[in-house]
Write a protein that binds this DNA or RNA. Structure first.
Lengths: 351, 351
DNA sequence: TATTAGCACTCAATGAGGTAGAGTGCTAAC
DNA sequence: GTTAGCACTCTACCTCATTGAGTGCTAATA
């Protein structure tokens, strides 16, 4: 791994300068550029020597002999770990974000989508928001409704305005009293947290009490389970996918298409994003650190949001490895703050 | 418009040959190619003369003096109206589609998504499915559920497994009896088809009967209305958006991005697709026939599906003007057939 | 010993010139 | 009416030379 003290102060300054420059210009950075720009009082030759060292250590590379240097993944890694300065957002950007978030949203899913859109707008990259994984302790109520003679609607309600339902059709007439009984049973199982273990025997037991075919009972209970699973499933909100086409590193059509297709695979993205981020920390996955080959020129920055320790979701940005890391971090930080406020407003003091 | 008899038999044959060729090769088609390929017994010079005529009439154009000809929008229009031969799908493709559609789906929305995916897979273009606009006569039941002391869930169920709901929070304790009354009232309004006209006065009227604040009553009735509106709203399922990157005419990054962004604007696509298609007919919008400027190199083929005369949705394909029109038509035809069967299975004999 | 000026060298990018080939339009002959 | 033939046009492609940014190395300097 990166040996923290491998680089003296001067090398760090030069590396930072190279990376900052490259992030902005997308062009390999030469020694003269650094000498001129940065007031180090050093000549370009000295910087050339340092750059040769940095290259040997693997922090930067040369596209070809007579070009400047570009950061390697290792270089970016050192940058985000040690060099990057994160300033807070400019006042006008904060205002812009606040304005966009202003509208009161009562459905939590729409809130996530909105947050995602704002992030991609502000950063210019692709944004990703993964909803928190809600535990079933969050479920408030289960209801079975008779829609007509031959169909029953299962409704499961959780905190935060989340409602899932499933309609079941059968060819048995179900009596109201029986349905009420089943309703009770389902809620009981829920309290028990054991609804996941519903099996045929349980249904047979119930059947003794209420005069309904075991299949119908089973179908109903399975639907309840399905709704609960839906609540427990995380949703993913990706926005600004086509933004990556704005960056010169993806001007190759074939590569661009590959990446767009990848970003459209929600499961893959979910896998990539589900990081083991510690509370409030930012997690960086730079280029090839994302195992997947197609991601070798992309970085992902993620962090968690939500009420501490309880149900946390992930929020992040996907962009080229040459990403404005500090800008992205400060943007996410600010949006997370607003998002958390909204979540608390919506979920209130639920367990 | 196109003067139907402007073209004699030979010109038609040549035009068809040019277009078929161009659709396949994406290369301008020269006179020799036509002379060689097509057994017309004509020399290339004769065909050159005919092509000059066709160009003057506006059916084909030349990218530059020494290139072959490519069809103009007018040429494509004549092609789809008069020349195109639609054969039925190859046996193995039918099997492929049937296999993909095989899984029994109970939720109509998932059915539409699946159909959309299959179309884009089979054709290689972007597919679009717009769900039918359901009229409120289709609504089966409205239910108001008390979730806890301070929240009420509105559930509206329509045919085809469609369920919409909305959760309302308030700071009034609502009694069960009152809720039941409200429930009745909502269903009454529904039968009346006048729920759209709910206004404050109505709520005040209701308030006389049941002891609840007018705001709460109004909020509930408004939510009912909102759910009904959601049911009446069409959904759109776009798949295979990135497919257009496969075609050489969009190898220009800037143009590609423009088109991808356009395709991501669901409202615009809905507008484009909502055609005045007559029953069962296919509707072609070729290139600049789609008013929108960014669409000038794209064509849209749409048709309707669903139970005749009742609630029809739109199904279609968006691709380059150089599209395999006949292949697309036969694919859509076949998928529509399967889709209709499923719809009848799901909706049964509802009104 | 650290720094730097100077210089030879490398390589991508750019542009000019030249060629090949696909295709056309026109003319004259069939 | 059809077509062979030919001059012409234009793009695509190749090659070659030039430019300029940037490097590494060496020798001189502080």
């Amino acid at each position: 791994m990166v040996w923290e003290n491998e680089l003296n102060e001067r090398k760090r300054t030069i590396l930072k300068s190279i990376i900052d420059n490259y992030i902005e210009s997308a062009q390999p950075v030469g020694s003269r550029t650094i000498a001129r720009k940065h007031e180090l009082g050093l000549g370009s030759a000295t910087i050339r020597n340092e750059m040769a060292d940095l290259e040997e250590l693997g922090y930067i590379t040369q596209p070809h002999t007579s070009a400047g240097r570009i950061p390697s993944d290792k270089g970016y890694r050192f940058y985000v770990d040690n060099l990057m300065q994160v300033q807070s957002l400019a006042q006008d950007e904060m205002i812009r974000i606040r304005k966009a978030m202003d509208e009161r949203i009562e459905e939590i899913n729409r809130l996530f989508r909105k947050a995602s859109i704002i992030i991609s707008n502000i950063t210019g990259y692709t944004s990703v928001v993964v909803s928190p994984q809600l535990s079933r302790t969050r479920i408030k109520s289960i209801q079975l409704l008779k829609i007509d003679e031959k169909s029953i609607l299962v409704v499961v309600v959780a905190g935060g305005g989340i409602v899932k339902n499933k309609l079941i059709s059968h060819n048995q007439v179900v009596e109201d009293a029986h349905l009420a009984k089943l309703n009770q049973a389902a809620n009981l199982f829920l309290a028990d947290k054991s609804i996941g273990q519903l099996t045929m025997p349980v249904a047979v037991d119930l059947q003794r009490e209420i005069n309904m075919p075991a299949e119908v009972i089973l179908a109903i209970l399975e639907s309840v389970d399905e709704c609960i699973k839906k609540i427990e499933t995380t949703d993913i909100y990706l926005e600004g996918i086509t933004n990556i086409l704005n960056y010169p590193e993806f001007s190759d059509l074939i590569k661009a298409r590959e990446i767009l297709d990848l970003l459209n695979e929600e499961e893959i993205i979910t896998g990539l994003v589900r990081s083991v981020t510690k509370d409030k920390q930012f997690d960086f996955k730079i280029g090839s650190e994302n195992q997947i080959d197609e991601m070798k020129d992309l970085s992902i920055i993620t962090t968690v949001y939500g009420r501490e320790g309880k149900d946390v979701g992930t929020i992040g940005v996907i962009g080229p490895t040459r990403m404005a890391y500090s800008k992205v971090v400060s943007s996410i930080k600010y949006i997370r703050e607003l998002l958390n406020k909204e979540i608390i407003r919506l979920f209130g003091d639920d367990p």
